[in-house]
Design a protein around this nucleic acid. Structure first.
Lengths: 248, 248
DNA sequence: CCAAAAGTGTTATGTCTACACCCATGA
DNA sequence: TCATGGGTGTAGACATAACACTTTTGG
């Protein structure tokens, strides 16, 4: 079979449609949200779906994902995109054979994130609504989304993805909230702080301070992300065993 | 653009060829090896390439990978296959637009691993020969292989992939050798043993013992993999900082 | 007997966790 | 002044790394 696999005829191949889907994740109101679009035509008319579109012959997969992200959110950021899976079951689209390459894009919460697109058709939906089955998604998009969340969970401990959820400057409480929400745990604020500050290069103090919330409290120091996040993360994966406390 | 992405015409899409490539990794003679096939026709005639082939319209990506693995190695094991990336640069195949979905398959070393295929055209090649550029690969296969190795490295700490490199029963030295070779580190045999035996469910003693090597030594106990490997690995990632010693 | 590799014991060091306590702010 | 969250200190539990030492084999 080696011969077959290495000497294929350029013209005798089965053609497929190739699409790129982008799972846009963001932290809104302390909760993980995903950007979904509502389908206007069959199949799955009226259902929510992950935004995506055809790969063009002249662009790479990464470029296609970047283009889709720009079209859907107005955000131009190749660095935010991360490919995490390909889906090609013959039945995944009832009309035709479609192979889709799925990407994750982590954005910090932006008001009017769906501004560049039709406001009625796109919305930020709380992830919990989908994971618990309250909202059904078109095609195999529920599975794709579950896989995306799982990938973000592991990437949180392995890469600097956490800093993509927060703004260019952030408090350590904001950063901690990302880990707590994505992993579903409570992290000790004191120990979290020490882990992140232990090594120079994770977070860099800006000297400025955030305004306390409406209920008071000491103003938190504002940091920006250091270079170390390119090589990993300072926080290890914590089991979601709710026996921890914050700094309430 | 939402409308465009959700209402595409089933007949107006750009067609692509979709292939599945399988990076078959194995531990041979204490070294990580990859199964390659030699191309018999242009382009890249005579060069080594990762085995693969077209996805068929009626099969899923996983099934296509499983079929390719069976055809190339005679091994039937869906559980060994792990999808890790998709590659679709327009220029990656000079003849046509090909999107390939790449899989890793970890096998224990088998004599005649390429037995089901043309023996002249397939071979197990030491990974070092490719990573250091001694052997050039066709297409973007060098990149695919680098990505595969990187994925195996992280999976080693996160999944039970280490046990796929060894046989159904194995000594702890064999298991340790997998980590040492893939990570490029030396692990303390005593501490490795304790980590793996600390929790019941990683390895299970068979009661039998392996024959010592040609240079003597105490016969090592033979273990089989427990159920815990489904949920992770007992060994944490160790930096390749050669300042450790084995139990020589 | 010796060399080699498996396997056990031990100890210093480092990391993690939990929680007490102080600080700075809004109301 | 009180409530709220930011930020520091610290003691015990736990994990890790290093390596001495014992065991069991082949030659």
């Amino acid at each position: 079979m080696v011969v077959e696999t290495t000497t294929y005829d350029p013209h005798g191949f089965p053609p497929f449609a190739v699409t790129v889907d982008v799972v846009v994740l963001t932290m809104s109101d302390g909760r993980l949200h995903v950007l979904l679009v509502r389908r206007g035509v069959p199949p799955f008319e009226g259902m929510w779906a992950i935004p995506g579109g055809f790969k063009r012959p002249e662009e790479s997969l990464d470029e296609a994902a970047q283009r889709e992200l720009l079209e859907e959110t107005g955000v131009d950021g190749a660095s935010l995109l991360r490919q995490f899976g390909a889906y090609g079951d013959p039945e995944r689209d009832p009309r035709m054979n479609v192979v889709t390459i799925a990407y994750i894009a982590v954005l910090r919460d932006v008001q009017g994130i769906a501004g560049g697109t039709d406001a009625v058709a796109a919305a930020l939906v709380p992830l919990s609504q989908i994971l618990n089955g309250k909202i059904e998604l078109a095609f195999d998009h529920a599975q794709i989304l579950r896989d995306a969340v799982e990938r973000v969970r592991t990437d949180l401990a392995l890469t600097g993805i956490a800093t993509a959820f927060v703004g260019p400057t952030f408090t350590l409480a904001e950063l901690r909230a990302v880990y707590e929400e994505v992993w579903g745990v409570q992290l000790d604020a004191a120990n979290f702080r020490r882990s992140v500050l232990a090594e120079k290069g994770w977070v860099i103090s800006t000297g400025r301070r955030a305004r306390p919330g409406p209920e008071g409290g000491k103003p938190a120091e504002l940091y920006r992300a250091g270079r170390m996040w390119r090589h990993g993360a300072p926080i290890r994966y914590a089991q979601p065993s709710g026996k921890r406390r914050g700094s309430k």
